[in-house]
Design a protein around this nucleic acid. Sequence first.
DNA 1: CTGAAAGCGCTTACAG
DNA 2: CTGAAAGCGCTTACAG
Lengths: 331, 331
Amino acid sequence: MATISDVAKLSGLSKTTVSRVLNDYPHVTKEKRLLVQKAMEELSYIPSPSARRMRGQITTSIGVIVHRIVNPFFSYLVNAIEELAYENGYQVLVFQSNNDPEKELAYLNLLKTKQVDGIIMTAVVNEWDDLKEYTNFGPIVFCNEYISDSNLPIVRIDQVDSVYTGIRHLIDRGHQKIAYCTGGSLFEMDGKNNDRSIGFQKALKEAQIPMNPKWVFINQITIDDGKEVAKELISMSDRPTAVFAGGDEVAAGILIEIKRLGLRVPEDIAIMGFDDQPIAEIMEPKLTTIRQPVNQMGEKAVELIIGMLNHADQKSKDHELPTELVIRQST
Amino acid sequence: MATISDVAKLSGLSKTTVSRVLNDYPHVTKEKRLLVQKAMEELSYIPSPSARRMRGQITTSIGVIVHRIVNPFFSYLVNAIEELAYENGYQVLVFQSNNDPEKELAYLNLLKTKQVDGIIMTAVVNEWDDLKEYTNFGPIVFCNEYISDSNLPIVRIDQVDSVYTGIRHLIDRGHQKIAYCTGGSLFEMDGKNNDRSIGFQKALKEAQIPMNPKWVFINQITIDDGKEVAKELISMSDRPTAVFAGGDEVAAGILIEIKRLGLRVPEDIAIMGFDDQPIAEIMEPKLTTIRQPVNQMGEKAVELIIGMLNHADQKSKDHELPTELVIRQST
DNA sequence: CTGAAAGCGCTTACAG
DNA sequence: CTGAAAGCGCTTACAG
């Protein structure tokens, strides 16, 4: 590997000058600049990122914290992030927090040690109090999940309104008994799941439907979780006629199990999901769902991070992207 | 951030000694070692990876080249890799080559610049001649796709036998007209897809069934690709009675479209997939498929890379993991 | 506009 | 067993 010294030697100039053309420093004469560039070309010189990093300079990697990469919503998000990052010369590290606060902190710690230059949090499990110290060590952006009560930029959809719209759709279809599945837990006071449940309650209240706590299912994430929900639903004496799931995987699980148990969708129980993952199109009947603009979300987050790395001012903190109610056959 | 000098100062010892305890160098007295450790603790010292990297030493990141992360087979592979890597203190970078040879080389180039310490290639698009120069710059391991005619370690399943078993299953069910979908292209002389087609031809030959080139579909990867295949299949005057797809996504696409067009599976056309992705269980009828041990594959690859980074000898080049024929309802 | 020198945080001969 | 010093490949005051 050629080093900066080799380039300096070959071009007959100093390392300083070479470094200057490397970093687009203004005051270098055209002739010297060309000499240097020619030498770099000839030696197929690539500056050592480790050395540059150590000097606290240019950086080229972004960490993305997800709950789990095998959830299609997250893999599509990572896909969008990786593609735009690549175009900008950045590499992407995948961090699976798997709902473990310790793991999340361990990943954030990589910001301290300059292993990554910035972090996109698409999942968040710690409290803001435990998170905020890391903001001193590099840019952090929320994308998907978030803590409103923070000073970080947020890329998100309007959770309140999206869920409100979904529940309204169910109500418009004549449903009064509506079950609700969330990936979150009880007692969240901030963030995505909290906003969603506000949307849920708003729609119910508006239609003067009392909420039945027995029909609320927390910590529901996977297809298998959905199957369990379906079993519970069916065993109830007072059974809901519709169920809203916070993710298409859970919705799919419910759908599969309900059909297996001999009931019809949507006639006996209507089901709607969230995200609009490929699976929504595959189910029979096809899932009604709320489409998230996953590519735009990922791209916006990359844009923000790179902007912050270049010390651009963040004009606005909140970046809200539009969702869309996709009505198919399950409602 | 505390540096090695801070630790040296606080412990009253030299940087050399601190560095030695950091790297488990043998000849340090217990007392001094404890002094150093106490100082490190007190300062919550974390060695700078950039600096260590620059000295050509300990490294902590592994790149994984995949075709595209949104393919569930790859996201499960990355999941397994990330988890084991995390346990060993390594970070994982996701590189999507997206079938682009240039991108693949750009990623491999990160090995040269020490941005990653090793690379797991789960996808490979370049020829060995263009790849081999990179082997000088750090460990590379094939996992999933591979080039047999190379000197790199390979983690793989027995492609020949797996496909052979699949096709045999179809033949045993009475099928003689069998279509074949592969993600590869024609004229591949080495690697996964070549081995698969050997398995395909072996099974046919053994049953004395001539191969019909019209029933071979190349470059088939996504659900949408599968739908197209189904349309073509159905429009044929001499139509196959069974189709083998090299991935569950393609198989799912075929299944969906065939049903939509009013034919029955497996009565009119039997379908089998490959991988055993979650989607296989979701389809109706459920997909018969070949299960790949995706977790084991990812873990084995990490194990090999870390071993190589620690300069352990690679005893064997080939690591073959078992597959399983999972018979469900689509055949 | 250009360069010599110091320094980033480590490791590694070399010497004792 | 331990340490002073050189060096990894860069950047950045400082000086001219």
